[in-house]
Design a binder for these strands. Structure first.
Lengths: 341, 341
DNA sequence: TTATATTGGTTAAACGATTGAACAGATGAG
DNA sequence: CTCATCTGTTCAATCGTTTAACCAATATAA
């Protein structure tokens, strides 16, 4: 029945009365093959709907034309947008992309890497999970001789190419804006500080406070996994303080959303009583009431640049070279949750 | 340099002084290999960190252990949740999943299929794009002798396994609920009716109206691509009617969101003046104010079942068999946008 | 004792494409 | 007329595994 076997190079050779190797060379435009033969080959190849067997080519050439991507969560708009752009860029260059999610779990991240190496991808583009502190599994990638590119959450320790935004500057933008709204007690719901981006946002937050002559109050600085649930918890905690904050800057939109819910449930006016800022520009931030001020991270560009970094590294297969760090400028999107007129 | 070549079956053979084929058989637990040899092989395999070359295995066996998935949009929570579950189920069985998006475009869908066939996936699990009317590109899949499974948006014409919810019943649930809220003029913002699910929802809507003795008014039935933009447009259109509807049932949450925005902008009370119901239970429906009543489609289950259908089909490689249609029961989630007390 | 199983492998071909080396025929130089 | 060169192709090995067919040695049966 159907199961029409695919035509191979051999079939073409038989039809034309030449050898498979001549066909192969004709198709790859080898100089030693006559123009006449080349044309004949190309023509019958098209006629017979020939498509090279990717598996055979990969086996022979030692590369699979597959690139693995590891994201913490695929659902997040930020990551899915990055993935989309990685894919677009790499498809153009003849690569296919395999997407895996770590679900913010160290264990899953390890097994993702194993799976990708086992599939023999030509490279891995990854963003580290919240749960990850040990980095040995990432070193396996380079031991396999393929490039690793990190995005958003990169780690300097790994010494690999990476792309992300200027987190330090982001915090400055946020604090600057909040002080203009005359906020004086700005709390920070941060991510785990072993992750570079969250550390940098925290550092930026502290430095900016200093710059605007505001005190750094440890009771206003919290650390968690930035889920909506975490946001609720941290906000509840902040409301218990005798001296409540008049603004909250969360390092993630989901945490900001959780915080917002708690604020509304407690009939606290946003932004009049407490102003709120999130991070990542997830679509829902513009949909909720009040809409949430947030930081745009240019996810499209991040994806594209990550792909380009891979292509560059892969082309030169020059893993030795010093790593390249691309840093994009953040953009503050001011919405209702922080705009006190 | 790193680039440590991977150990092959041959290396193991050399170490043990036997042939590669003996090693291969030992690893696959062939009965003709002695227990002693098997143990020795397994041990040195582990010691040398042997991992079979998937490319070679695939080439030899004629199957890649890769499954392609085509979704209209990866960002949608509904689809991403399905994908997540397909992946989970298939990974367990040793398959890897390649995800592609059609972005609701016929052309992209075609090129996705081509790409997947070219990668030599062992099967394709797909949901048809809004833009697609011609189905010939899907037939190519079966011509290649691999199974095709459809989810959510399946097409009877294709005669392949599929899984989705009972769309007809969904509309009944919605209309029943709205009539209980004493709505009498219920509008329907539908998807393109060449897509089966939207046709069925429309049919269910009409039948349910009849059941509750409500007239079917063509001016209240609209068709579009169900984006937020489309929802805005359709709602604006409905508001221009001399006799406005007192309820709107949209076949998609994004369209419902667009409609809600227009309603709020026009100071129309929801649900008191016009009640609103969406479809898919996207997370934002519970986040906006008022929260949107919607239909839950059990995306987790859909993914899992799609994977199972593939595995079954693939095992028997029995493409001839009559297709299997799995239909899940929908669940109406009632929220503020339609609850008049 | 001879024929027959059984055990535990080995050999070799195959999957489909690539590629350096070899080779045959035509052409040109000396 | 011979040797070298060029052209267009074939040969054969290779990538790493799998597997049907084969073989030698030992065990079993008649």
């Amino acid at each position: 029945m159907a199961n029409k076997k695919n035509t191979t190079i051999k079939d073409i050779a038989n039809v034309l009365g030449i050898t498979p190797s001549a066909v192969s060379k004709a198709l790859s435009d080898h100089p030693r093959i006559s123009v006449k033969t080349k044309e004949a080959v190309r023509e019958t190849a098209k006629k017979m709907d020939y498509r090279p067997n990717r598996l055979a080519v990969s086996l022979r050439k030692g590369k699979s034309n597959l690139v693995g991507v590891i994201v913490p969560r695929a659902k997040s708009n930020f990551f899915s947008s990055i993935v989309e752009n990685i894919e677009k860029s790499l498809n153009q260059e003849g690569y296919n992309v395999i997407i895996t999610q770590s679900n913010e779990s160290y264990k899953k991240e390890c097994s993702n890497i194993d799976a990708l190496l086992q599939i023999q991808v030509d490279g891995i583009i990854a963003s580290i999970s919240n749960d990850t502190t040990d980095l040995n599994h990432y070193k396996k990638i380079e031991q396999n001789g393929i490039p690793l590119i990190m995005f958003d959450r990169g780690m300097k320790e790994l010494e690999v190419d990476s792309v992300g935004i200027n987190d330090y500057l982001s915090s400055h933008l946020v604090i600057e804006h909040l002080t203009k709204q005359s906020c004086k007690r700005i709390a920070h719901i941060g991510g785990y500080s072993h992750i570079r981006i969250y550390k940098n946002r925290l550092k930026g937050y502290k430095n900016a406070l200093k710059k605007y002559n505001l005190p750094i109050l440890e009771e206003l600085i919290l650390e968690g996994d930035l889920t909506k649930q975490d946001g609720r918890k941290k906000m509840t905690q902040l409301l218990k303080l005798t001296k409540r904050p008049d603004a909250v800057y969360a390092s993630g939109d989901y945490a900001a959303l959780g915080a917002l819910q708690v604020l509304l449930e407690n009939n606290i006016r946003v932004p009049e009583d407490i102003a709120l800022v999130g991070f990542s520009n997830e679509p829902f931030t513009s949909l909720v009431t009040p809409s949430i001020t947030t930081v745009n991270q240019h996810s499209e560009k991040i994806g594209q640049i990550a792909a380009e970094l891979f292509l560059k590294k892969n082309l030169k297969s020059d893993l030795e070279k010093a790593p390249e760090y691309v840093v994009l400028e953040p953009e503050l999107i001011i919405r209702e949750s922080s705009k006190r007129q």
